[in-house]
């Protein structure tokens, strides 16, 4: 049921039954290293190319998810998946052998929550019972697509971010299933916001306004206060984007500073690690951090009410070279341990 401007209330409260994550070496060494399901020491994951490696990260995460819930792939109704590569090849090749009806998504770094929203809506409406959503990114394949070859010696400004190598996925099911798991209660799909930033090394600043819009709209639509949530988790705004988000929300009379946290800030040690600059980014950032770390915290009931907001920068190197600015989006989903 639609409430307010753009939020959907999912009356049948689909369950987020299980999640699964896989990450590369740098992420495994980071502060959240212990929380990921699958940690791979080899950035190539035993493959010949980075694209194949990314595919394997995603495949491994999905297979691990199926194993965790002890389901065969023919029991899954649909799978939503996306990544950053041209034509979403990591997703297509990962799903190739799964024989599950597939929807490919492109929402840049917002893909993880975009998939979660679509899967939840389908389950809520009774069109499916078990739906997987997933997303992945790989530092090396993204660098080569969006920036410079890896071996090229260049400098990055402090606002730049570091693409996470990893994948995450989850299984949305009807609330009828007995097993205890968090519920999806509200979803707020975002609108595209573009405040004219055209610097690809400053994605945090480009995406922050989209996050502000979606969070404020969600709170207005649901009539909730930021304190209602134990955590408002953004995807990959990094240090700088997070500051802008909190600042702009404050200007609108909403203080989220006490509950806000950002996956891009959490996954790496942004203070001591020179390479990561402003923090992590990429579809795999929120995908691995939420699937690994935050979902576990929810299961342990350390946090019970979460607003998960994934931000995406929807440009391409072509549009930037042609002088366009960065259109950004943020999707939000409310995940709660109790439904009243």
């Amino acid at each position: 049921m639609k409430i307010g401007k753009q939020t959907l209330k999912l009356e049948n409260t689909p369950k987020l039954l299980e999640t699964s994550s896989s990450v590369g070496p740098k992420e495994a060494d980071g502060p959240l290293g212990n929380y990921f399901d699958i940690k791979v020491n080899d950035i190539f994951f035993g493959e010949k190319t980075f694209e194949k490696a990314e595919t394997k990260f995603l495949t491994t995460a999905i297979n691990n998810l199926l194993q965790k819930v002890s389901l065969q792939n023919d029991k899954i109704d649909y799978i939503f998946s996306g990544d950053l590569l041209n034509q979403c090849i990591a997703s297509a090749y990962s799903v190739r052998d799964l024989e599950i009806p597939f929807f490919g998504l492109y929402g840049a770094c917002s893909t993880y929550v975009e998939g979660m929203i679509l899967a939840s809506i389908l389950v809520n409406s009774g069109m499916g019972e078990k739906i997987i959503y997933s997303a992945s990114s790989h530092f090396c394949s993204s660098e080569r697509q969006f920036r410079m070859p890896l071996e090229h010696g260049n400098q990055r400004p402090p606002s730049a971010q570091y693409t996470v190598t990893g994948a995450g996925c989850g299984l949305i099911t009807t609330s009828k299933i007995e097993k205890k798991a968090p519920f999806i209660t509200y979803v707020t799909p975002g609108k595209i916001v573009d405040l004219g930033i055209n610097d690809m090394a400053n994605m945090g600043a480009a995406m922050a306004p989209a996050a502000v819009m979606t969070i404020l709209t969600h709170l207005e639509d649901t009539g909730r206060k930021p304190e209602y949530y134990d955590a408002i988790i953004t995807g990959d705004l990094g240090n700088e984007g997070s500051e802008i988000l909190i600042d702009l929300c404050k200007k609108n009379g909403v203080d989220i500073s006490k509950v806000h946290t950002d996956c891009g800030k959490e996954i790496f040690d942004t203070i001591n690690d020179r390479d990561v600059n402003s923090g992590g980014s990429g579809c795999g950032c929120i995908a691995s951090v939420f699937s690994g770390y935050f979902y576990q915290k929810m299961k342990e009931q350390k946090i019970n009410k979460v607003l998960l907001v994934a931000t995406g920068a929807l440009m391409s190197p072509i549009s930037i070279n042609q002088g366009e600015s960065i259109p950004s989006i943020a999707h939000a989903v409310a995940i709660e341990n109790e439904v009243n």
Partner: peptide
């Protein structure tokens, strides 16, 4: 686009971001 939530134009936002971002050393 409903940007009145920000009370700033694109130019003002750019200025705001420039001020906010940490400069290269």
């Amino acid at each position: 686009m409903d940007t009145n939530k920000f009370n700033m134009t694109k130019e003002e936002y750019k200025e705001y971001v420039d001020k906010k971002s940490e400069n290269s050393p």
